[in-house]
Amino acid sequence: MSIDPPNQCMTVESAQTLMNQGVSCQVEIDLSAPFQVGDRVKAKVMHPETYTRLPRYVRGKVGEVVKDHGVYVFPDTMGQRLSTKPQHVYSVRFSAQSLWGMDVSPNDALYIDLFDDHLEAV
């Protein structure tokens, strides 16, 4: 399945609609979530040559799921004009020390939104 966006000239009206209403990236489907709030999860170690929303600095690090945002289209495949591959997106909390070592404040944390395909169970 590939995505083939039409290359049409945007009218004033469609620009106004786009700016006022935006474009939802959420998908209203019933998809069971592989991860739950409170789960410890590991960001996968991967080095794709193609587009990804998984930054290098969290790869291989363990964090905790703090919220399930629901189901969204997957930019990693959308960016290649492949399938929309809808999946859950979670807010994952990483302690600052787990990312950067013991010299940083033990109180601080980094929150990042990760997709099912970015995560594995610990």
């Binding site: 998984l54 930019p75 997106v89 404040s105 601080d108 944390a109 990760l114 997709f115």
Partner: peptide
């Protein structure tokens, strides 16, 4: 300090 990376949507 909580840093929020808005990497998704």
């Amino acid at each position: 300090v909580r840093v929020w990376d808005s990497n998704a949507d």
